[in-house]
């Protein structure tokens, strides 16, 4: 969860997930790829925090990009979903619901929430096998998530 030096550009890339749990590694691996590709253009944070504890990662930054695994009914593993902070909440996203609750709470309490939030979620096939392999299509989606991150870092939406 340790952050690198705060980005001067006020952008944070937050990779959520767990490297021990098959496809749940996606957010972490993608965030690391963003760090390798774009270096100091953003503060990159990798975390397996869940629920309320996400609050540690969403404050004190102007623009926030979250990369996570999601479970949208009937989507094919590896499908990338992009949500904006202002969109209605999708129903069943493992880390995502907690993220919105935390942002709502922080906003309500007058804490420094981001002006802009973009969530890049990959449809996961399996997040419950300890030490499991990633689904090939999920792994193959990492470059696409990195592209979206690049566009976000340049100031575009996606």
């Amino acid at each position: 969860m340790a952050a690198s030096n705060a980005s001067e550009a006020g952008v944070r890339v937050l990779g959520l997930g767990n490297e021990l749990l098959a496809d749940d590694a996606f957010g972490i691996l993608a965030a690391r790829a963003v760090r390798r590709r774009f270096g100091r253009a953003a503060e990159v944070v990798c975390s397996s925090a869940a629920g309320f504890h996400l609050i540690d990662h969403v404050l004190n930054i102007k623009r926030l990009l979250v990369i996570d695994t999601v479970a949208v009914a009937n989507a094919i593993p590896g499908t990338i979903h992009v949500f904006r902070g202002a969109d209605p909440r999708p129903a069943t996203l493992p880390h995502f619901v907690g993220l919105f609750d935390v942002l709502d709470l922080a906003r309500r309490l007058g804490l420094p929430v981001p002006d802009e939030v973009l969530i890049v979620g990959v449809e996961a096939a399996d997040c419950t096998t300890v030490g499991g392999a990633m689904h090939p299509e999920v792994r193959a989606a990492i470059p696409k998530a990195v592209e979206i991150a690049g566009s976000f870092l340049r100031g575009g939406a996606e």
């Binding site: 397996s48 869940a50 907690g98 997040c127 419950t128």
Partner: peptide, 12 residues
């Protein structure tokens, strides 16, 4: 349940 299932998240 995150623990009973060992899967993370604030999910469904």
């Amino acid at each position: 349940l995150g623990c009973a299932t060992h899967s993370l998240g604030g999910g469904a």
